[in-house]
Write a protein that binds this DNA or RNA. Sequence first.
DNA 1: AAAATATACTTCGATATCGAAGTATATGAA
DNA 2: TTCATATACTTCGATATCGAAGTATATTTT
Lengths: 171, 171
Amino acid sequence: MPVRLDSANPSTMDEDEVIGKIARMPEKSFGYLVRRCHRRFDRLLNARLATHDIKTGFWYYLRVLWIRDQVTQKYLSDMTNVAENTTVTMIEGMVNSGLVQREVDATDKRKRLVGLTPYGRSLENKLMGHAVEINRIATRGIKEEDLEVSRRVLARMSENLQQELRREGVG
Amino acid sequence: MPVRLDSANPSTMDEDEVIGKIARMPEKSFGYLVRRCHRRFDRLLNARLATHDIKTGFWYYLRVLWIRDQVTQKYLSDMTNVAENTTVTMIEGMVNSGLVQREVDATDKRKRLVGLTPYGRSLENKLMGHAVEINRIATRGIKEEDLEVSRRVLARMSENLQQELRREGVG
DNA sequence: AAAATATACTTCGATATCGAAGTATATGAA
DNA sequence: TTCATATACTTCGATATCGAAGTATATTTT
């Protein structure tokens, strides 16, 4: 059967047709679209942070800590969507850079609470501006209504994927 | 001035308000939403590919080569959104794994054309099914109409960011 | 209370990625 | 034609990331 590359309706396509379509048209695949977009967000952010001598890897943790201070590494991993062993390394780096400090939780000695130093806290105002501006650049010329739909869709896809990851015992 | 965390309209928010809002509500930030979504796509794909002994790093290149064979490393970098030096390393790995081969372009000796081996080509059917299924899982329960809006938005954001990256001389 | 299980963190070795700076070849300008 | 610039690829050293397996502490079950 020939593969139609145009406006075929997914719900009426059979299996081979769907595979063919996504195979030949990455722009139809959310995996592709999301990855490409992410790479570019990340690169731009990276370039901006470099001018402040902040490693991109630290950014995501700072972002969490500015909202809630004194949290476990587990919590940071969940919020940043980064594996726990990665978080260990990153937090060590942040401690060495004087951004955060760590102490064992008195009531549960398995936990180590991570807290901002005054220096870490002081970066918020300086750095958040970049995040805001990059978001503004990215969304330029797009209707607020469509942005809102997309936020919902991205959140829902994340949920769907998380559920599947758990189901398959990944992470 | 107090920051309203509810349904403020961005177009009427002043600077501090926008920063405060995005700072405290990462779910409003596309940088955050896209990254989280990407991480989960990537992890799930990774878990699937591991069962076929294929490194995730190779996947994106295979994906391009299945559509168009015998292309330059530059082309591969552009299509995969990966820096050229990364592509060098990856293609070397793929050559060693017997997935592709390389030859200098006769008409332009700067170029090295990368082409699939029969083995590399033979993986397409086996592996594309995973990509399709993961997309299906991710988009479960979302209206096709909203998906289409989101595809457009993601593509447009990628364009906007690309333009800015060029403007700032990044990449 | 002892044993089994779960949770938080860590260590290890590997992979994926980049920026900066370098080499070889091609193209355009003087 | 020769010099300057651009393009494609490479090398190097660093960062960001993970999976698997290990340790310490807490919680649950028997």
